[in-house]
Design a protein around this nucleic acid. Structure first.
Lengths: 136, 136
DNA sequence: CTTTGAATATTAGCCGGCTAATGGTAGCTT
DNA sequence: AAGCTACCATTAGCCGGCTAATATTCAAAG
């Protein structure tokens, strides 16, 4: 059997390089690679609980907790207790957290170009459709 | 701008879930997720130097060094000095390291089915071709 | 032959992922 | 009211990724 012929292998291989690219562009706007996806969810819906954030980004609660620690230290978000339920905390964007979105959008456009650089427009569209079908 | 519409976003999203799947099947044969790709390279060419392994798997030398530490502890590989160059070490598979390939192949087939479960054969082929074009 | 520079492995330290275990709270059952 | 159970956040500890810095060795230049 040839591992290299499997989609599972190719997808993992692509992952490694893509992760490096994300890290590069995330760092260029002052974020770490893991933080960007949490921020994206908060830009969609602000004030979410950690457990809901974890579900949205498909990460474990401890991982999200750790990532939020970094975002808190750098004043991208704040934590607030939720009055109706003392177990939960809600995470809110700071002005700095709102503002960094614009910078990330610009960086993301470059990332997208780099990612799809070797593909035609048709192929790019096909890839996106297949990825959506794969895991959504 | 909608991050969710970009291939960079979708690829990262697919990555997260795929990594979990790899971890699950790797563990089922006694390996950790990062170790499987190093082993695959050794199954192709045994006795490689660490620096060359790192290049083959697209990881940094310190990362490969750490992964090899785990493989050494569990007797999947051995280290041997390279006669011609005292800077280098060569990594060789142990019998256990050779043997585990068969188990991983079986697990990998299941992983492949799970990964491509939602796709038709045509789509699966297309995905593989696009991934190859992306990062090879 | 000495010095300088490149290459290889390794260590330290960070972030990002996981599981397992803890502690506190809410809610339901009795 | 008491107690069981489920839920949420957090901590501890592991593996996997990175960059930066170190030590050793090789090779090439002087």
């Amino acid at each position: 059997m040839q591992f290299e012929d499997t989609a599972a292998y190719l997808l993992a291989k692509a992952t490694v390089l893509h992760k490096n690219a994300i890290q590069k562009y995330a760092n260029s706007v002052g974020l770490h690679s893991g933080q960007v996806f949490v921020m994206m969810e908060l830009w969609k819906v602000d004030g979410q609980r950690q457990i809901d954030l974890a579900a949205r980004v498909n990460l474990s609660p401890p991982t999200v907790n750790k990532i939020l620690g970094g975002l808190l230290e750098n004043d991208f978000v704040t934590r607030a207790r939720y009055e109706d339920d003392a177990r939960s905390t809600r995470i809110f964007l700071t002005p700095k957290g709102v503002q960094v979105r614009e910078a990330l959008e610009e960086a993301w456009i470059e990332l997208e170009e780099q990612t799809l650089g070797s593909l035609t427009d048709t192929e790019a569209l096909m890839l996106k459709q297949l990825l959506e079908k794969l895991f959504l």
